[in-house]
Design a binder for these strands. Structure first.
Lengths: 212, 212
DNA sequence: ACCTGAACACCGTTCAAGT
DNA sequence: ACCTGAACACCGTTCAAGT
């Protein structure tokens, strides 16, 4: 078995190159650490000091890569929309498209929110601010939304869904799954109501309004 | 017409009782001021110092009436649910019940969220914490939910809505309006999409799944 | 270019003290 | 009982300074 590749062999003159700067890509490391913190401890536990500490970096190092804390959160949100879009496309493909694939997308959407509650909240919490800096996030969220519209168009082509404006239908469907996700996250579902069962039942109700 | 009842006539000996402590009901004043601040400046602008200042009271006076800031927010949320419930019942009654009244409730629900965005967020943001202190808020939110269930039962009695379990139907309908409200609040609706038009179209789609 | 340490303004909360 | 002022721990952010 070959030895692991020497890490940047000529890059350290003495023993470690005085441990100059910790990261080749601190920006990425910061986002990853923020995502990890949010997922494990919640968004309110995310402090710049904590992120820096855990990365072995000063608490102001972050400002070399982000304008402020919100800019870091925007990047976290964009990352979440990328993951969500991949989950939606994966569910659609795994279901072989059609109504099965479409339903799988709905389940996958709520499933993402329920398994990443804090991340999901950050994703939507930041979108409200319409001014500069959220372009990346808006781009990614639009991409995720497009996965839904694509499914609708495919279903319409097969005559499986009514021929209304795809974007209008998509907004309505998005509202349904987003509403289910938020109700589940906010813990307002009465005792004994399983999220999965509610989602299944809702998708059946939903389809009654979507058939041609 | 009889004069209005005198407000505790013997309760103030001199003229104002040396202005001792500012309020007969500081607790209520704190909640009102918090609601006002949230409505006009947003929830992130709500600081205990600011509320105290505006009421001419020290910044720690609040702790005589609330365990902490979150307890104040819980009260704010409960107040919001009371207002929401009244708006829903009012819409139902104004529409004379039936499908017209039901649709009016949907419009009123989203309307409340859109006109009180920060308050609406506080109402749901606090519900997630299942531990002590939110009982008032849970009570009020359940009451608002009941306004919806009552409407469903009435419609079912008239044969205007399918005879599924009212609570399950109510959760589904709540998810739709809550999803619409949150999408509108989070500013993710594409340019040119009017909230009112989206709500109207959604209610039509929704009804397709609700008729018997 | 990239990172650091000290400093600043602001926050929620505690607590001994006043009436 | 109800309120106050000083103090504490914690936060995001700025900035002059280091390499």
């Amino acid at each position: 078995m070959a030895a692991p590749p020497a890490p940047r062999p000529s890059a350290r003159p003495a023993r470690r190159r005085p441990d100059r700067y910790h990261h080749g890509d601190l920006r990425r490391a910061l986002v990853q650490e923020a995502v990890r913190t949010i997922q494990t401890q919640g968004a309110e536990a995310l402090t710049l000091r904590g992120v820096g500490d855990r990365l072995g970096v000063s608490r102001t190092a972050l400002y070399r890569h982000f304008a402020d804390k919100q800019a870091l959160l925007d990047e976290v949100a964009a990352d979440g929309f990328r993951t969500l879009r991949a989950a939606l496309r994966g569910a659609w493909d795994a279901g072989g498209g059609g109504r099965v694939g479409f339903d799988a997308m709905g389940v996958a959407y709520v499933g993402f929110a329920v398994t990443h509650p804090s991340h999901y909240r950050v994703m939507f919490g930041g979108l409200a601010r319409r001014h500069g800096g959220v372009e990346d996030e808006l781009e990614e969220s639009a991409d995720a939304f497009r996965a839904l519209v694509d499914g609708i168009v495919a279903l319409q082509r097969d005559g499986a869904m009514r021929a209304d404006d795809p974007q209008s239908l998509a907004l309505y469907i998005w509202a349904v799954v987003h509403g289910l996700a938020m109700l589940a996250l906010d813990g307002v579902l009465p005792e004994g109501v399983e999220v999965a069962a509610l989602v299944d039942a809702s998708i059946i109700r939903l389809w009654a309004g979507l058939t041609p």
